[in-house]
């Protein structure tokens, strides 16, 4: 639809204003991280790196970063292996069964976080994995599996089903077909799924608050306490680092999809 004259200016102005509104929090959080006082505020006297220094030298914050990375890696490994296997299964079993299983396995993504948190808290206490590594890792893996299934399923839908039939008709077992034929053809999808699973775990806060206490103390958990108690300006430094990582990650993702699009067009 053509768009010109004043409606064009009005719509474009509104859209860019919304864009500014979306970027604004990120833009203010960065200078705040460089302020030299012990409060969370814009720098007034001068810039300083003291909050970054605290972040990267204090044992507590480093331990939380370590916990978060460890939990995210372990839960990603579980979610990606189980989820990929499941997506391949869903691709090949009869549609009604695939529909039922998919509906059940997408539940952790759809259910409100607080509901999942209460259910898992009670279960983890009952089976004795409350506030343990394995408990947090399993909880995050469960929450990430739906994202893996969706991403890998999308990847599989672009794959020619006859490849699998050819391998099977030549006598390959399902497992061998998976390893030699299917996985090599959907490796981009699996890599994307791994990124999603990692991010789900890395950002998770509500369920984590309920299934862990002090033995596993992830970065979002420490940030939550830092914000709620309103005392720790190191949170602003964490925020700045996370904003930088997010911006770089999105730029890389957009640039690579742009390049793929360009390669396809040429």
């Amino acid at each position: 639809m053509e768009l010109k004259g004043w409606p064009r200016y009005a719509i474009f102005t509104l859209a860019w204003t919304v864009a500014l509104f979306l970027l604004l929090p990120g833009l203010v959080a960065i200078p705040v991280a460089f302020n030299d006082s012990r409060f969370i505020a814009l720098p007034t006297n001068g810039l300083s790196l003291r909050h970054f220094e605290t972040l990267f030298t204090s044992g507590g914050w480093l331990a939380s970063i370590g916990d978060s990375v460890g939990v995210a890696l372990a839960s990603t490994a579980i979610a990606v292996s189980f989820g990929t296997l499941c997506a391949v299964g869903l691709w090949r079993v009869t549609p009604w069964l695939a529909g039922v299983v998919a509906a059940l396995l997408l539940a952790p993504m759809i259910f409100p976080p607080i509901v999942s948190a209460l259910a898992l808290y009670r279960a983890w206490v009952a089976i004795g994995i409350y506030d343990t590594w394995i408990g947090v890792v399993l909880a995050h893996a469960i929450l990430a599996i739906p994202y893996v299934i969706i991403t890998v399923t999308t990847s599989l839908s672009l794959l020619d089903g006859r490849l699998e039939q050819a391998a099977r008709s030549l006598g390959a077992s399902p497992l061998r077909t998976l390893v030699d034929i299917i996985i090599p053809n959907i490796r981009t999808g699996i890599a994307t799924a791994a990124v999603f699973a990692f991010i789900v775990s890395w950002d998770e806060i509500v369920v984590t608050m309920f299934v862990s206490s002090r033995a596993v103390y992830t970065l979002p958990r420490r940030m939550w306490d830092g914000i709620r108690e309103n005392v720790d300006p190191t949170v602003a430094a964490v925020a700045a680092v996370l904003i930088a990582i997010t911006a770089i990650g999105v730029l890389i993702a957009v640039a690579s999809s742009w390049r793929r699009g360009g390669a396809k067009a040429s």
Binding site: F82, L85, V88, G89, L90, V93, L97, L105, I149, P174
Partner: peptide, 8 residues
């Protein structure tokens, strides 16, 4: 392939 669904 039904076994593939089981772990998840």
């Amino acid at each position: 392939y039904i076994g593939f669904l089981l772990p998840a």
